[in-house]
Amino acid sequence: MNGLYALKPWYADRLSGLRRALAARQVSPDTLTAAGVGCAAGAAAALAWLPAPPAALPVAVLLAGRLAFANLDGALARDTGRTTRRGALLNELGDRAADLLVIAGFLPLAPLWLVASAAFATTLPSWVSLAGAAAGAPRRNGGPVGKTERCLLAVVAAASGWAVPVLAVVAAGSAVTAVVRAVWVWRALGQPETAVAAVARERAVATGRAMATERDVASEKPVARVAEPASSAPRHRPSPSPSPSPSPSPSPSSSPSPSSSPTLGSLPSEHHRSLPLDPGEVSGGITHTRPQSPADRGTRLRGTR
């Protein structure tokens, strides 16, 4: 018993052109959700402040927009790959807020207890559907008095002025809808575990796609890749060269001048490699190599323990 919800595929086809235009302009699905809540608020204001017959047209137009935006936000998110868990939460909150705003439009037209009862009853079908989906059952939508039927009843109240009878029908019909959905969900959960597991797997796949979309958006920074060496063979470590033979001590007459004394950069490569380096002497990509005295090395070793 889906009621007017059975027309949703037909209605979605009528909105396909608008959905493509919104996708081309990169409109956010969250913007459409907010627009649907705004349409519901406008319909409630027209229902509360305008007289009965003239209020029907603005209420009908605004509630039609509310249903259109409720259909477009999710479809646009799926078409553009922007389905996220936050978007799903915002969609549910927007639907509940829109329902309550429409019921609030009856406040000047009906007793407060009846308005409060209807507001509570309109949330029951969604609670049942969400509880069933959390338990692993498919999401249940539709009538006999679902979201579409409640919008139609609000238009009837705006056109006829029968606010109290219409609000009573909304409250009772929403409660019956909650019971119908609860029975359906209960039977679905009583099916073999394989069927429930298949539904849960489909939901897990959809959630995984949404999480992957969030990760792709969050990780747009390129990651530098380190080039692999051309050959995986181990490097050859040169064997230490033999100690040079002691050279004769220079004569006093041939002592080098201070300007001609050898520097560290002019030392042979093997002798340069054997000097202990200070790992802290790195600045700007250039390593300043200076010998360490035994006292320095002992201080550094003590400091690292």
Rank of each mutant, 00 (worst) to 15 (best):
167 L>N: 02
9 P>Y: 00
165 P>V: 10
7 L>S: 08
255 S>K: 09
35 A>F: 09
239 S>C: 03
144 P>E: 10
81 G>A: 01
29 P>T: 04
132 G>V: 07
274 S>R: 12
54 P>M: 10
133 A>E: 13
194 T>A: 15
30 D>G: 06
173 G>T: 08
263 T>W: 01
131 A>H: 05
29 P>H: 02
176 V>P: 01
215 R>H: 05
213 T>Q: 10
296 D>H: 15
50 L>I: 09
223 V>H: 12
87 G>F: 14
211 M>T: 06
89 L>H: 05
244 P>R: 06
205 V>Q: 11
187 R>E: 04
35 A>T: 06
100 L>Q: 01
158 A>L: 11
187 R>P: 02
232 S>I: 08
218 A>L: 15
141 N>K: 13
240 P>G: 06
212 A>T: 02
122 T>F: 07
74 G>T: 11
241 S>F: 09
207 T>A: 14
1 M>N: 11
9 P>N: 01
142 G>F: 00
220 E>A: 11
51 P>I: 12
140 R>M: 07
64 A>I: 15
63 L>P: 03
219 S>L: 11
250 P>F: 05
244 P>H: 07
154 A>F: 01
110 A>N: 04
203 R>S: 08
219 S>M: 04
64 A>G: 15
151 C>G: 15
12 A>C: 08
82 R>H: 13
115 V>F: 05
9 P>I: 03
216 D>R: 14
125 P>V: 09
